[in-house]
Design a protein around this nucleic acid. Sequence first.
DNA 1: TAAGTTTGCGTAATCGATTGCATTTTTAAT
DNA 2: ATTAAAAATGCAATCGATTACGCAAACTTA
Lengths: 349, 349
Amino acid sequence: MARRTTIYDIAKELDITAASVSRALNNNPKISESTRKLVIETAAKMNYKQNKLALALRSGKSFNVGVIVPRIDSNFFASVIRGIEEELYGHKYNVIICQTHEDEKREFENINTLLNAQVDGILMSVSSISSQDFSVEIDRIIKRVVEKNVPLIFFDRKKSIEGVSSVTINDFEVSYLATKHLIEQGCTRIAHFKGNQFLEIFKNRFDGYRQALIDSGIEFDENYVIETRSTIVEGANAVKTLMKLKSPPDAIFSSGDFAALGAIQQLKSDGIRIPEDFCVVGFGNEPFTDFMELPMSTVNQVPLEMGKMAAKVFLERINKTGNLKASNQVVLTSELKIRESSLRAEVYK
Amino acid sequence: MARRTTIYDIAKELDITAASVSRALNNNPKISESTRKLVIETAAKMNYKQNKLALALRSGKSFNVGVIVPRIDSNFFASVIRGIEEELYGHKYNVIICQTHEDEKREFENINTLLNAQVDGILMSVSSISSQDFSVEIDRIIKRVVEKNVPLIFFDRKKSIEGVSSVTINDFEVSYLATKHLIEQGCTRIAHFKGNQFLEIFKNRFDGYRQALIDSGIEFDENYVIETRSTIVEGANAVKTLMKLKSPPDAIFSSGDFAALGAIQQLKSDGIRIPEDFCVVGFGNEPFTDFMELPMSTVNQVPLEMGKMAAKVFLERINKTGNLKASNQVVLTSELKIRESSLRAEVYK
DNA sequence: TAAGTTTGCGTAATCGATTGCATTTTTAAT
DNA sequence: ATTAAAAATGCAATCGATTACGCAAACTTA
């Protein structure tokens, strides 16, 4: 391996010291113009490239940020990461990706790995939490991150922890709107696929749904609420359960697109007409929702904006060394996309 | 910022030297059991975490690999990255993500950034190339990477460069199969949406398509081949052009799913029946292809396997220090997924 | 020309960990 | 008890860059 040129190599070449080379390359005023020119030329000639590792060790800044997501191959997370990368690119930061696969253990490991790698910040979306015990443990390690003063920014799946910034969408409001929309379409028995209630976003979606019912004078019925992960299979199973009720629902507001898709597939194979007999609204605006046989109503979580905003919050935090405890809770406005799966012709209402 | 504990802190605490602490923590045999125990306990108590930056500087191994993709928010690339991350996770490597947005300039920049960050390897899918000049320039910088002996592995969008490993799919063969399939369905005037011909994968897809025609005794007609990027708009426009021909085609084999989708949408709005009047096969197996009104035939590029394989090739390369020049060209078998957009009932053939 | 000021550059410490070599301590053998 | 061998530990260099400090040369100014 041809060893890479260092400032010492340049120094030797010019018979000066590495210190001068460093100064020449860093716009340090304590160097003569002539030497600077010489160094810069020689550096170019020798194809010198600064070793960021050495710089990072010395300066304490690695110019890497860690991003922790449950998985990367979902449109939402991939888009958020795209946003983060784009925003940070101009600021010379690199993005290190970690996946948890919704596994809390992996979450600890990832946080530790990133801290050991001396990242300058961590942007994360927390994993589904399987138990209160884990929740407590995660809180503990997160507090360690905060104590170390490593900027931590949650996006989407946040936890409310003092001193930690977050970027989320208006889950409650948009869920409220979605449910209201179903009511306006004439639906009266609206079911909900709720997500893991340890996660605030899913709690908020559930709350928004319930509040909309209450405000519309519709009785809230627990039997219409099923906890599902957002997969086609679980959505199909959930809707099967629902349709066995004495008084089955006539609409679903799902907290995830895939569960909604599973429900639609199941309903169709049962001969139920959508949207005439049954309306469905999903959540996430996965690309497929727009290309389906029946385009699905859903919520656009503005992932690109979310990623960019999370990156911006990180950059702000980095740039004000004082005022360390200030945390920043950004709430973006999401977009209810009404499509055919929940849009009834007037005659059906 | 509470400074992180270092081995020197532990050394001071126990009144020994950092060297001994290091040995104790690294299973070095030149240390007594008693000291080792003491050090390990104290390290735990003081919440010591190894600084990977210092280790990387000293050892020359950063345990980071760079991944360069045109964009991360496509199902294909996101899945490949997932595969890479999963495979490398167990080997303690981290993944740094870079996007080029199909911009050659960004591609240079990203390669340089990664080299400066001292990554232990680069896995990349090259960007669309806008001109021969750029192609030459990219070749030059890639050769620099090879000279520096930094492992470089192409996946999917490879370039043929000596000493560089690659993981691809059998683009020619599967395109041949897809075209043959269309012929078997009774299609006789098969068009092709080809991609950027500077990229081998698109060239291979085109060649596979053409060879299948020739081998089936169908005349190859240049007018049936249109270069498009894989977007809905370009696909729709391309099919408009095709349908204006004196003898319009009765099938399309598209080198991308989105262009195929655009074509289908356009054909439908023109009242053309699919698959009865017109068959379409895409490429990429984007999730939406399975959830469309008419599920689309396409090619599953096995991105997860591709990512894992690329990571494996990297690991192999790392682990054999000798035999440096050996490169590894892995070709995975992709899967033609025949769905309704190209599957005619017997009566129509 | 003497004194003070500025400029340019070298010396050496630092970031945190590892490791070859030297030295000390312990153990074993006679 | 003596000595050799073995084990444990310390010393100091190293990875590559930055920077406070100090010294010497050059430049001002009177």
